[in-house]
Design a protein around this nucleic acid. Structure first.
Lengths: 347, 347
DNA sequence: CTGAAAGCGCTTACAG
DNA sequence: CTGAAAGCGCTTACAG
């Protein structure tokens, strides 16, 4: 014993099994199994004896053998987005998801799959091989085929993100961040701070969509409610450069906005660079906000006001939904506005 | 049958097993197993018969049962970095790794663990549970304890990144990108383009380290070789802002550099913003390079000249090393310089 | 070439 | 409360 980090192997490199624990404790194998899985059924004295043997041998049950017996892989499948590095939220999300799953004693299996309906074959393989018990879906797209497909087969899953069908019609269970609500709040905050011309800067069309439209809708509805003009511009690509050009068109208008709500942090950073180039000061002359609270948000001078997606809450909800059984339900979580100097909001 | 996407379940929702395939084909179970695992041993005629049954039932072997019999989990473990979102290469790396592992018929299990020696307990658990066959290590730090610990226990692993002990002393097998070589090449390219004052911009100390020092060493050695001055500055944090401030000190010098080699893309973007703020033109007045070819590199105006880490090559090498058996070896891969307008190099 | 047997390391009713 | 039995769904020698 070298201090708790030794792993369960005998001198010949073989792993310790139930049988050896049973032998050492002088009980049968099923008794050992019972102290592990139903300790209340076994006599306290033998329980202690068995626990001592487990401890001294450093025994841990084989996941594989247990899985075969219980018919549970103990693994949740998660498909990595096919465009690595495109979203700045992917990495924090995956980390939080892994921790949330681990907290329930299961683990995360990641895999890749082709886009769209073709990718279903990969899901089918995983199911047929009984390699996972359930799936977590993210990077959902409008009309995502996975949800209906899985639901119709009775495969448990939970989705981060909506597929945007009519309300209540989405198969299965989902959780999402209320992008519309967060952007509306941003507009209210900016308006309270004295802004009357609050523009929106989004992505031009062949881009993600659902979530982007949701954010824009929140901005637009709130502007209407407050009787503010609706100025919007769109970046040709998801880049700082694209955003800078789009921002330029806004700032060149006869009545330029005094605040710009960008649909993402990267876009916001592009807006800021354009603002600076015009010798205007972000957070003074022009207020700028982003979305995601990614590493970029704390990377620009003074910091970027942005909307944080509550990764831990999202993933905890996903895990809960996973075990909620069949049915349809949705949870909408609030994004949290993080105020920094690009738009010093009073929250 | 609805077109190949149906999964292997009977009408009662139970998965198809070997036994049912055997029954339908009119052979024994081990014959079915043989056509799957050693087809050359079975008569072509029965092989066909069995294949037809497999096909028609949509049968796939249970991973769990197979794992128990073969004593191979079929899973590779990979620990996610504890600082999600800090590195822009994490996401592309993970995606490439997953594909590389899948190409060998195995899958990737991701997990989280505490930093440093404490985290070894998590590795120990995974091993004791026989949940994985091997590990891929990344986010290596100087003097990383994992390599020696795993090697001494005979657990297969492969490392992306060095632990920077004396040459040849690192336990196990590793692959890394030659940051020194790439930065030296950058310096040569800049020098050929007429630059005589080529500064380096890195991170101030309590940051990653090994790789950062390696990049700086490449820059420094090449500057010495060419007889160029060695100007360097360091960002206080891994942020555009920190880089902008550090760049300012360089540009305020009596003999300011005409080119700046930044240790990372985020730093480089910060340098560019400082350059622009001074009404200087990146790629004309001041040439700027980054490292990683992350999404930021194509996000700034005209694009950032940077060093691409060959994700597919790295991960293919990792998988190869995983199966190379015990021993020590290292592979140093070249980074590829991607020239864009922030430093229009002739390559 | 094919099949009967044993075993992988657990768990789950079920007797005692 | 405890243990003998059966079984999870495969694979791997080994007879025939």
């Amino acid at each position: 014993m070298t201090g708790g980090l030794e792993w369960a192997v005998t001198t010949d490199g073989q792993a310790v099994t139930l049988r050896q624990v049973a032998a050492q404790a002088g009980v049968s194998r099923q008794t050992v199994s019972n102290v592990l899985n139903a300790p209340e059924r076994v006599d306290p004295a033998t329980r202690l004896k068995v626990r001592a043997a487990i401890e001294s041998l450093g025994y841990q049950p084989s996941r594989t053998a247990r899985s075969l017996a219980t018919r549970q892989a103990g693994l949740i499948g998660y498909c990595l987005a096919r465009h690595p590095g495109r979203s700045l939220f992917t990495d924090p999300f995956l980390h939080a998801l892994t921790e949330a799953i681990e907290a329930t004693g299961r683990r995360l299996l990641v895999f890749t799959a082709p886009e769209g309906a073709e990718g279903l074959a990969t899901y089918a393989d995983l199911i047929a091989q009984r390699a996972v018990d359930a799936f977590i879906l993210s990077d959902t797209v409008d009309g995502d085929p996975r949800h209906g497909w899985l639901a119709s087969r009775g495969v448990p899953f939970a989705s981060f993100g909506r597929t945007w069908p009519e309300q209540g019609e989405q198969p299965g269970r989902w959780v999402d961040v209320d992008g519309a609500g967060a952007c509306a709040e941003l507009v209210r905050g900016l308006h309270s701070a004295g802004h009357d011309r609050i523009a929106f800067l989004g992505w031009r069309d062949p881009v993600p969509v659902g979530a982007a439209k949701d954010r824009q809708r929140g901005w637009r509805d709130e502007c209407r409610r407050l009787g503010l003009p609706e100025q919007a511009a769109y970046a040709d690509s998801d880049s700082m450069e694209g955003a800078a050009h789009a921002a330029a068109t806004l700032l060149d208008a006869a009545q330029p906005p005094t605040a710009i709500v960008a649909a993402g942090d990267l876009l916001a950073v592009g807006v800021i660079s354009e603002v600076r180039r015009r010798e205007l000061r972000p957070g003074h002359d022009i207020w700028v906000t982003g979305f995601d609270d990614s590493l970029l948000a704390t990377s620009v001078e003074g910091g970027l006001t942005t909307v944080r997606q509550p990764a831990a809450e999202i993933t905890a909800t996903l895990v809960r939904l996973l075990d909620a059984g069949p049915g349809r339900s949705g949870v909408l979580l609030d994004g949290r506005i993080v105020s920094r100097s690009s738009a010093p909001l009073d929250l």
